[in-house]
Amino acid sequence: MRLAASTRNLTKEYVLDGETVRALRGVSLDVPEGDWVAIMGASGSGKSTMLNLFACLDRPTAGTIMLGDDDVSKLNDDQLSEIRASRIGIVFQSYNLIPQLTVIENIEVPLYYQGIYSSKARKRCIDLAAMVGLADRLKHRPTQLSGGQQQRVAIARSLVNDPYFILADEPTGNLDSATTEEILQLLEKLNNDGKTIIMVTHEPDVGDRTKRIVRLRDGLVISDRPTGGDCSTEHDDD
């Protein structure tokens, strides 16, 4: 089984006001292709740090992090940027679309930073917009869309570069329950189509929709098990 991502003894330390904060103290985790993992934990547990490392926005202090077969632990800023542009799809809590760009242009951004700009690429963006149900909103700007629609644009954008995995940071945090359901169904569908999803969330209901829940506390993995069955007891951790 191929791995979409894996970490070995992943450690991250920050120096804050002269004091060293150990955000991750040695996390080892394998995410096989096609998996849907929820990383859960209280604030301060290290889940944001995990997300930043998976997103290649940061480098670990020690340990390794592999995306596919690529070791990204030691890459420099430009190399990390290239990986982000070519192999990572991120969905944020607050959508993070660029306000002056249209739907289609927003979806295109990661391709633009890979230097890809062709009619074929544009066709792919249009197909993705159609897939998330926004075929009739291509020329709209983010402010003209509802929260759910914006998040669907973000999901389309995260898919445009054919990433190792979709990295979702509280993707339903800003949405009402009906829209949350829409987005989760969309993610479910993508996962059924074989897309790997790594999702950071603190909502148990959302976590339950995934295939596997990894719980962090104080920078360490305290539990890692598939959802369903007797997982209800673990909700007390939050």
Binding site: A55, A85, P110, Y113
Partner: peptide
């Protein structure tokens, strides 16, 4: 600033 953050997260290099 936020737009810059988004662009960086989506793969923009410093030079971009």
């Amino acid at each position: 600033t936020r737009e810059i953050g988004i662009r960086r997260a989506l793969g923009a290099k410093r030079s971009d």
